[in-house]
Design a protein around this nucleic acid. Structure first.
Lengths: 337, 337
DNA sequence: AAGGTGGCTGTTAGCGGTAACAATAGCAGA
DNA sequence: TCTGCTATTGTTACCGCTAACAGCCACCTT
């Protein structure tokens, strides 16, 4: 029994496996891809040789030859806010069976970076792209439109998709929340959220929110923005600032659950009567909230479902229309009276 | 002025740009990669043609021809626990200037999945790989060892790296925490953590922790495990369970900050004197803790730094030795007396 | 016995780029 | 004017794999 002595300088190719097993490269290729007919004994020989050598196929060459790439580009703004990981889960779940593989790119909410991430991804000729949001640079839209692959824009449907869109209407979500708040009798409502030059979805929620307020003859009594840092801490700080500046405020609407949770903890620590004296609401429905002393009112963003639907479109499992709208449910929690 | 009429069926190649600009494919290639000498007017012509057509280079072909791939595989167990996003930040920061691009793969703590993610990644012939942990299947280790590219195993250094390792000693971290707890006078210490068939780092921390307890003649008075679900909520539940089962416990050591935070909120809600009656500590130093009513004792895992160092090794910016050990600092917070 | 037929394996010709080298032109110096 | 050199551009030969098709052989069929 000779020890397999792989030349350490030379990376293995089909030819090595072919020589080791005494068949043609083509046959090796067929065995390794499970395609076409190969007799059982040949298959065995090849597989053993490949295993013994430790051969790892070169997908670059394979992709070039077959004009097929089993990659799906996923472009998202951030990994650290607990919302996209869940989308990824949905995507992976669906893609898992299909031989397709997600490849993640992060843009940090920077349009330039988004453009270059998209460019980079497209240059690998993926089978499809999933991209957060409907707002992209002209160049990015053009590239995507010309790529000749399915493009699914996710999270948001308030706008014109390049190809397909799967998401919720953030404008409507904002409106709905405002209506619920007003119906509960709150009147002095403040907004606390991200400084959002490029968080278009947060912006749309706020637009919808203010729209509904206006319809009821109300306007925001205060607003406070932040950027960067620990969202939970920022939530505390902003809440303190607002309560200090506008003592008679009776509702705090947060642009996301994390700062909302910070605000909730702050109010509880201050002994403020929630939701009697002040009501609170966030957005996203992150599972973090389940562990809070009191459950923050929120609206889930259908993240898992969005991921799944998007992946299904890419995988061709669904002949969806252009827009797939999902409907978030309002979870009143314990912070709206 | 004729409108550029890109055949919508046909994806563009260098040849299209070459024909549109009247130079050879090679020259176009040179312009687009900024390599070799090309006269200014030619460069202009080519760039304009490429832009007008909306040409996106095919990296697959480029990579095959040049035997160079600007990708770095990053294999991590999870995206949703707030620890890896920060590692990714460190990696991106360093890689950004180098032309290298990270590609993330997620294993969900499943060894089989890790193996297949590694296989898949290697088949794209990346320039390097960064992988969480030192424990991998034999096959995975073999593949990585033979790949002929720099392999950096991160987070942990208690073991034998394939190539390079950048991380902290979790055993030592556990020991240190135990020593601090004992020194503070706590004696009835319980552990609460993940059901960790494959979270080797949590396991090592616990080992180190118990080792130090043993040296002081102590053993854990209770332990509680969980898996899945909202970590914050699980922290509450587990804490309740332990306090109920072992009323005289005086310290709760959590395997991560998230469940620790849940425990802290629970204790505070119960009006328990922290850190007088009961002390608490977690692990990781996630920024989430900054927003809590009281600061949980923890140990930062040097995540950003680990990401940076690993990327530097891959980028060849550092001729680091085999192991790079970083030293976490104990943050006592407000939950150790 | 000639002519299928199906199962298996091999051959050929690229896929779309790039490395390496060849070719050409323009120009200075001898 | 001729040589030598530099700056620029083109040509050729792959990179490692797969689609498409060709070939071969055993086994039927009629």
């Amino acid at each position: 029994m000779t020890k397999p002595t792989p030349d350490p300088r030379h990376t293995l190719t089909l030819r090595d496996v072919s020589e080791a097993s005494g068949v043609s490269e083509m046959t090796v290729s067929r065995v390794l891809r499970n395609r076409g007919d190969v007799s059982a004994p040949t298959r065995e020989k090849v597989l053993e040789a490949a295993r013994a050598l430790g051969y790892v196929p070169n997908k670059i060459a394979g992709a070039l030859a077959s004009q097929r790439v089993n990659l799906v580009g996923v472009v998202i703004p951030s990994l650290s806010n607990m919302v996209f990981p869940e989308v990824m889960t949905g995507i992976s779940e669906v893609l898992d069976g299909t031989g397709l593989q997600p490849v993640v790119g992060v843009t940090n909410y920077l349009p330039d970076r988004e453009e270059s991430v998209i460019y980079e991804m497209l240059s690998w000729r993926p089978s499809g792209m999933i991209i957060a949001g409907l707002e992209h640079s002209t160049a990015a839209r053009a590239m995507l439109g010309r790529a000749g692959i399915p493009i699914v824009e996710i999270m948001d449907i308030d706008g014109d998709p390049i190809n397909h869109a799967v998401g919720i209407s953030h404008r409507r979500a904002g409106r709905q929340m405002a209506e619920a708040i007003i119906a509960a009798g709150y009147r002095k409502i403040a907004f606390l959220g991200t400084q959002m030059p490029n968080d278009f979805r947060a912006k749309k929620r706020l637009e919808g929110f203010e729209e509904a307020l206006a319809k009821a003859g109300l306007t925001l009594v205060d607003r406070e923005y932040y950027s960067g840092g620990s969202a939970l801490l920022k939530g505390r700080e902003m809440t303190a600032a607002v309560l200090n500046r506008t003592p008679d405020v009776d509702f705090l609407y947060y642009s996301n659950d994390m700062i909302g949770a910070g605000g909730l903890l702050y109010c509880l620590a201050q002994g403020i009567d929630v939701p009697g004296r002040i009501g609170l609401a966030g957005f996203n429905g992150v599972e973090l909230l389940d562990g809070l002393p009191r459950k923050l009112a929120t609206m889930d963003a259908c993240r898992l479902e969005i991921g799944k639907r998007a992946a299904e479109i890419i995988a061709g499992k669904a002949s969806q229309g252009e827009k797939v709208e999902l409907f978030p449910t309002l979870q009143r929690g314990d912070t709206i009276r």
